[in-house]
Design a protein around this nucleic acid. Structure first.
Lengths: 403, 403
DNA sequence: ATCCGGTACTTGAACGATCCAATCGTGCCT
DNA sequence: AGGCACGATTGGATCGTTCAAGTACCGGAT
C-alpha cells in the first residue's frame, strides 16, 4: 500500500535520476557499467518491476498478443490447439510478450473483436489460425496496418512454396530450435518508432507459418509403397478445403511417382468417423471391371477418418470366413490422442515449432519493424526462420501398429 | 496518429466535461438520462474505447485474469483444457475481463510466475487447475491476498460437500445457465476500494468449482446395475490421488448400496491404455475360490483406462471359441474425443459451466469485494452460484454403444 | 582561450484515464 | 426571501513510465 516500488524509488535508492533507471532497463548501453550495476542492484534489492500499464500508456505498446480460441474443431482443433497455445505462450514469454485469448464465431465477429482489443487494450499483434481462401480477417488487419501472423499459409497467393529446412530428404531434424536468437537482452533497445506499419507489411503477403500437409501424406504414402503396397487408397474431405486439397495432393503425387493409377482409389467425405468407415468399406469392397481388387492400404486426411477406416479394415480382414486376409494398413493425420490411444500411425504436426515460428515472425514485426537491412544476411545457421517471412514446416510420421 | 479519440474528445463533442463522460461509463446512475444519451451517442459516433492502460494506471486493476496452460496432461488435459479455456474466455468477456495464459512447470516456478504477473501486469486474479493436497500455490496466493479460484475443490478441508443444484435425483438440467446475472450493466459502479483483500478471503477456504466425480462414477455404476449387471468392476488410479479416490468412491458407494461385495472387483493402475487393458484382462479372467466369475461390466477412472478395458472386453467376448459370450459393458470418464470416436459411454464434465462458475466466483471477489451482506440471501433462483463460494457440479453420463 | 563533439546523466512534460474536492444550478421547505 | 439539501457538473491533481530537451564535464582541435 504505502510502498509500491516505482522507478523513482529505485532512482532514489541508486542515487540517479528516473531516466537513468529507465535507460538501464531499456537501453543499457547508454549507461556507464559502474552506474548500471548500481542500478541493477537497487532493482534487485527493492524487487522492482516495471509497470506495464504506465509503460503502455507512454509507448502505446502492450506487449500482448492475441489468439482466438474457438468453440471446438475449427481449423485446428481439440488437443491440437492446446499444444499450439502452450507453444505460443512459452515462446512469447522470454521476449516479454504474453498471450491473451479471445473468442468469436465467424469472421465478422472476429473483426469486431479486433476493434475492441486494439481500441481498449492496445494489442500489439495477432496470431490467426484456420485461415481460408477469401479470408476477410487478413485483409482487415493488413489494411489497418496491424501486425499479424497466420498459422496456415496464405491460400490466395499460390506461388512461392518456401521450405523451412534444408535438404528434402525424409530424414528430419526432430528438434529444430526455431529461435535461439531472442534469449539475449531483456528487452530490445529503444527505437524511434515511426509508426509506419504499412511499410512493414509491404510486398502484398503477410508472414505465415504452416505445416506441409502434402509432404506428410506423401511420406505416409511412400512408406506404404515401400512396404510393398501398390494400390494405396485415400479418404479425404470434400473438395473446397484448401488444406484438404493439399493433403490429397501429397498422396496423389506419391502414387503418380510410383506409376500407380489413381482411379477408383479415392473417396471424399465429411470429417466424421462413421463417414470414414463407410468410405473405407466402400473402397475395400471395390472390384472394378477388370477384376482389380480394392486398395490394400489407406491414407486418410484426418485421424477421425482413419479411425473409421481402421474399423472397416479390421472387419474386412477377419470377415471372409476365418482365414485372416493380409492386414489393411491405415495412416491418419494429426496424431491426436485418439491415434495414440488406438495405435494408429499418423502424421504429426510440429506444433511447438510452429508456435515458436509464429511468435518469432510476429516479434520480428513488432520489435524489429524497420530493420530491412538485416534481412540481407542469408542462412547463417541462425535457425529456421533466419530472414524469412514464411515458414513451411515438415510434419513427422509417427509409426505405430496400423501401418 | 493525429486523432486518437480520448475521453476529452468525447467530452468536447458532447459538450460536457471529462468526468461526466467517465461517469456515464462507470456510474451511469449519476448522470441525467438526457445527458447520458448524448454522451453515449458521442461515444458511438467517435468510436471511443477507454484506454485500459490509463484506467489501470489509476485504478490498479487490469481486468485481466490468468490461467496456466501446462505442457500436456497435467491435471486436466488435452481437449478438456481447451474447452475449459474457451468457457473461461467466453464467460469473462461480458464482464469486461480477458484471459491471459502463462506457463510453469511445478508449483515453485508457478509462484515465480505469479510474482511477475502481479508485479508487472497487475493481474486481477487467477484460475488454478489441477489442485492437489498440500498445494503451495493456494497458500501463497491466499497469504498475499490475491483473488483466485480453483477448478478442483480444496482437498485440505474435507467437510462441507455443497451441491450446486437442487434435488439429488438422477435427472439433471442439461443446461444450467450458470450466471445469467452479469449481462446487465457494462461495468460495475465505482466503489471505494479499500484494498483489504485478506478480508475477502476470510474463513480459511478459498472459492472453488469442481465436478462431482463420485456422483459420475456412481451414476455410471447404477446404470450398469439397472441393466442387470451385478458384479461391476472398477479400474482406477493408484491410491494417493484425491481425484482418483473420489471417483472410486462413487463406484464403491453404488455397489454397497446394492449390496454387492466389492472384493476382487477392483484394480489400481497407472493411467495408460495398456495398463487398462492388462487390468481388464486380469479382472475378467478372475474366478475366485468359490467359483464366482469376474465382473460383467467395468467402470473406469478415465477414458484411457476404459479404452484399454474395451479392447480386453472385445477380445474376451469373442475368444472362448465362437459363441459370443454376453458383452462386457465399459464406461469411461471425461468424455474425451477418444470416447466419442470409439463409441465409449463416458462421464462428461460440464466444462463450460465449470468455467463460467470460476469466472463468476472470481468476479464476485474482484468487483463485489466487500459485499458480505449479500451472501445472506439463500437460493433465490438467481442461478447456480447464487451466494455460494463453492460450486460442485454434476457431470453427465453420455451413453454410447459400450454400456 | 574558445569551440566542438561526445558521453553520462538530469529535468520537465506528456500519455489518458480516475479520484477528489469544490462549484453550480435547481427545487423545496419554512 | 433565505436557507438548505441534493444532484449534476467542473477543474485540478495524480498514477508510473518514456520522450525530448537540457546541463555538466572531458579531451582534443582550432
Amino acid at each position: 500500500m504505502a510502498g509500491r516500488v516505482t522507478i523513482a524509488t529505485v532512482a532514489h535508492h541508486a542515487r540517479v535520476s528516473r531516466q537513468t533507471v529507465s535507460n538501464v532497463i531499456n537501453a543499457p548501453q547508454l549507461v556507464r557499467p559502474e552506474t548500471r550495476e548500481r542500478v541493477r542492484a537497487a532493482i534487485e534489492v527493492l524487487g522492482y518491476r516495471v509497470s506495464q500499464a504506465a509503460r503502455q500508456m507512454r509507448t502505446g505498446r502492450s506487449r500482448l498478443i492475441a489468439v482466438r480460441i474457438g468453440p471446438a474443431g475449427d481449423g485446428i482443433n481439440g488437443s491440437v490447439l492446446d499444444r499450439f497455445l502452450h507453444g505460443l505462450t512459452e515462446a512469447a514469454a522470454p521476449a516479454g510478450y504474453r498471450v491473451v485469448l479471445y473468442t468469436a464465431t465467424g469472421d465478422d465477429a472476429e473483426i469486431a473483436a479486433y476493434e475492441e482489443l486494439l481500441g481498449a487494450h492496445d494489442l500489439d499483434g495477432f496470431v490467426l489460425t484456420g485461415t481460408h481462401p477469401g479470408d476477410a480477417r487478413t485483409d482487415w488487419l493488413a489494411r489497418r496496418g496491424v501486425p499479424f501472423v497466420t498459422f496456415g499459409r496464405n491460400w490466395e497467393a499460390q506461388p512461392e512454396p518456401v521450405f523451412g529446412g534444408g535438404e528434402h530428404s525424409p530424414t528430419q531434424h526432430s528438434k529444430a530450435q526455431p529461435e535461439p536468437a531472442f534469449g539475449g537482452g531483456e528487452h530490445s533497445p529503444t527505437l524511434n518508432r515511426e509508426a509506419q506499419p504499412e511499410a512493414v507489411l509491404g510486398g502484398g503477403e503477410h508472414p505465415w507459418v504452416d505445416v506441409d500437409g502434402a509432404w506428410g501424406t506423401r511420406a505416409a504414402t511412400e512408406r506404404l509403397l515401400a512396404a510393398g503396397h501398390r494400390r494405396v487408397g485415400f479418404i479425404g474431405w470434400p473438395p473446397g478445403s484448401a488444406v484438404g486439397e493439399d493433403r490429397r495432393e501429397g498422396w496423389a503425387a506419391a502414387l503418380r511417382a510410383a506409376g500407380v493409377d489413381l482411379s477408383g482409389l479415392e473417396r471424399r467425405v465429411d470429417d466424421r468417423v462413421a463417414e470414414g468407415e463407410r468410405a473405407a468399406v466402400d473402397l475395400l469392397g471395390t472390384v472394378d471391371l477388370l477384376g482389380t481388387a480394392g486398395p490394400s492400404a489407406l491414407v486418410c486426411a484426418s485421424d477421425s477418418l482413419a479411425l473409421g477406416a481402421l474399423r472397416a479394415a479390421t472387419a474386412h480382414g477377419t470377415a471372409p470366413g476365418g482365414i485372416a486376409s493380409p492386414r489393411i494398413a491405415v495412416i491418419g493425420f494429426d496424431d491426436t490422442p485418439v491415434a495414440q490411444a488406438v495405435g494408429l500411425t499418423s502424421v504429426s504436426q510440429p506444433l511447438t515449432e510452429a508456435a515458436a515460428g509464429c511468435v518469432a515472425l510476429l516479434i520480428r514485426l513488432l520489435d524489429g519493424g524497420d530493420h530491412d537491412g538485416d534481412l540481407d544476411r542469408e542462412g547463417e545457421g541462425e535457425g529456421d526462420s533466419g530472414g524469412r517471412r514464411h515458414l513451411l514446416l515438415r510434419p513427422r510420421l509417427v509409426v505405430r501398429d496400423s501401418g
